[in-house]
Design a protein around this nucleic acid. Sequence first.
DNA 1: AGCACGCCGACT
DNA 2: GTCGGCGTGCTC
Length: 837
Amino acid sequence: MEDLFGNNYPSSSKNLYADIILPVPIPLTFTYSVGPEIQEEIGIGYRVMVQFGRKRILTGIVAKVHQKAPEAYKAKPILDLLDDYPIVNALQIKFWGWLASYYCCHIGEVMNAALPSGLKLSTESKVQMHPDFELENPGYPMDERELLILETLEKKEEVNVDQLESVVPAKDLHKIIKSLLGKKAILVYESVKEKYSPKVEVRVRLAPEYLSDSNKLNELFEGVKGKEKQENVLLKFLQQVPIFKNAQLNEEGLSKKILTDSGCSPSSIDTLVKNKVLQSFKVKISRFALIQVDDKPIELSEVQKDAYDAVQKEFTSKATVLLHGITGSGKTEIYIKLIMEVLESGSQVLLLLPEIALTTHLVARLQKVFGDKMGVFHSKYSDNERVEIWQGVLSGKYNFIIGVRSSLFLPFDSLGLVIVDEEHEPSYKQYDPAPRFHARDAAIMMAWLHQAKTVLGTATPAFETFYNAQNDKYGYVRMDKRYGDAELPHFHLADILKDKKKNLLKLDFTRLMREKIQEALNHQEQVLIFQNRRGYAPYISCDECGWIPECEHCDVSLTYHQYQEELRCHYCGFKDKVPIKCQACGSSKITTVGSGTERIEENLSLLFPEARILRMDLDTTRSKYGYQKILEEFGSGNVDILVGTQMITKGLDFDRVSLVGIVDADRILFYPDFRSGERAFQQITQVAGRAGRRNVTGNVVIQTRRPDQLIFKQIISGNYNDFYQQEMGERRQFYYPPFVKNIKIVTKHKDFKTAETAAIQLKNLLSDIEGRKIILGPEKALIGKIKNLFLFEIWIKLEKNANTQERFKQEMVRIISELQGDKRFRSVRFLIDVDPY
DNA sequence: AGCACGCCGACT
DNA sequence: GTCGGCGTGCTC
């Protein structure tokens, strides 16, 4: 409505408030008042700028709009509305709330994890001289440094705080600015700047008048006759953009870069633009190259078709289906078929993959099928790229996202299907920072919010998942035939101790392993060697007294890195020189103990000097494309042996691998954790799955000191169910998940005693909470000190009852915040990990 | 978390 | 005397 003076007021101005989620670790939303200018627009999911505390200006997300004025305080006003449309939808806000409550963290922490930092805003403090202030007549005495700043400000309109650091030392700057503020000599204000800058391309097109009138075009060519450069530009343009065939094409234009790349000079293009022959314009472009779509229909085999039908059938009664298909059974095709179906119905699809699987051929394969409708969300991408994917989901450009854990936070509004591939992967659980969520479980929740379906795919289901399938909570589809009927590999157990006694163990390799490798090499077949430990040697030790160098800040031994000739702590990055003498007894007999991938690689080159060997671990794949390079190299057949960590279990699908060797199975098996058996089964089965080809049976050699272990029999027979049954017996007996719900609490403090006391106190308080439970500890954590902070752990086992769990968590959070109020424990950090891994 | 306020020790 | 250490309290 317009008043007499032409001012515009919202028709129904009222007292409106908004609850804002702010990126701070406080378990609340904050109520701000909504000014009349933005009352019409504001809504859930919009970004706003607010002042928080005395100094800070933050970006927040509107969680709720209402008219209830807060009673205890006066709400501050929202400073600014940042968007024309909500950047986060209501389902996401619900999802955030669920994560915060289920995983016992603050909603601000969820917000921090969810939004790419390009969508949070950067506040840059700017300084300017106070309009009423006169340097000649200051009104207050000014010291020298204050005058320096004022002089700088007089020269320029506005200055960034950090620019003043050149005038006055940074550490004093704050004080001086504060003092100047007090003297009303300057103003400090925040200017908000979007960090996100879309990538733009400059394009040119022909001015429209030439399009409709062919005479004009002829005239044009007459006109440029003799002006060779310009003529060239026009010809190249028409060659690239055949406007005679399709006039529409002119609208899209042609990238200026294409013209300059084909030999046109930029200046001649500019001249044509200046003469209004060409028009120059800018378009936002995606950072991802378009890939040709392969429109061949995918063909499912009989087995795949059956499995696909079975999944669909399960979906009629269950929202979540476990697709239990052994390695090489062809789950990917089933995914593709399911995805296509959902996309055609107009819904969105999310495919989650573990980090390391995201650089493999699976992505390329899917990209071939889905082209640029598919967005890839990777953790190695820059923030700009993440924002682009975010906007792409928002605008509907991407209906299908394939990505890591954090792609769960993208602004989907109509998911129809979520697929969690390699569902058993422990890396789906986030530990640091909060929210400590499991992507598989969160995905199921997310799907539920959208009334969508979930497929959990794996060759070796997590016990929790299989348990749910057994109890009819999830649907279950099994595929136990390898694609193309490839045979399962032969397993061999090699006894490390026996060989050692007979002096047959050479450089970590048993005779059997060496023979099998030689055999494969003779047949020109490829070999994978698995060692789940990177670096050269895990530690060094004194032969005389057993002394082992340890980190000064952490409770771990230092790892020996041969390449840099140094000892390094994998927890805090501490580095030390390699000692020449034992610091305990003075002996100079210091040797390396154990083997990492680096040493295995070296050993192999000594044992098989003629073989071409490559190593794949965190150290050799650190660069953006390091991983792909190694895979390509191996795939090309120029490599005989690939040594690597977990990584080699993912995405390798090479026809020429006939042997898989596991250097030290015990390392996987005897990890002090109730899941070690499950994990060993998964890992060994996964690596073993890489062995074998269409018509030659593969071999798997497992080196161990305990070949009698039952688990090996079960792995070898591939009998997941037997293994599951037996392990579950133990889990039931000793109260482990899935029979109980686990919560781990870690106390962290620089003082050992304080960390311990806090944990003891907490345990006592927790014991009084109602409900059936077992509380273990506190115990010093496996690694008792990291970065000079001591760690204590409490493990809670709760009965399987949603109400008990809910109540327990609520009480627990209350107790912890009370405990933090105690001045002894003020600086103790309490980390809550629900469903720890 | 981050930031201010306030209360103590060791310096020009 | 003040600079700066960090313990304490609060943020709509």
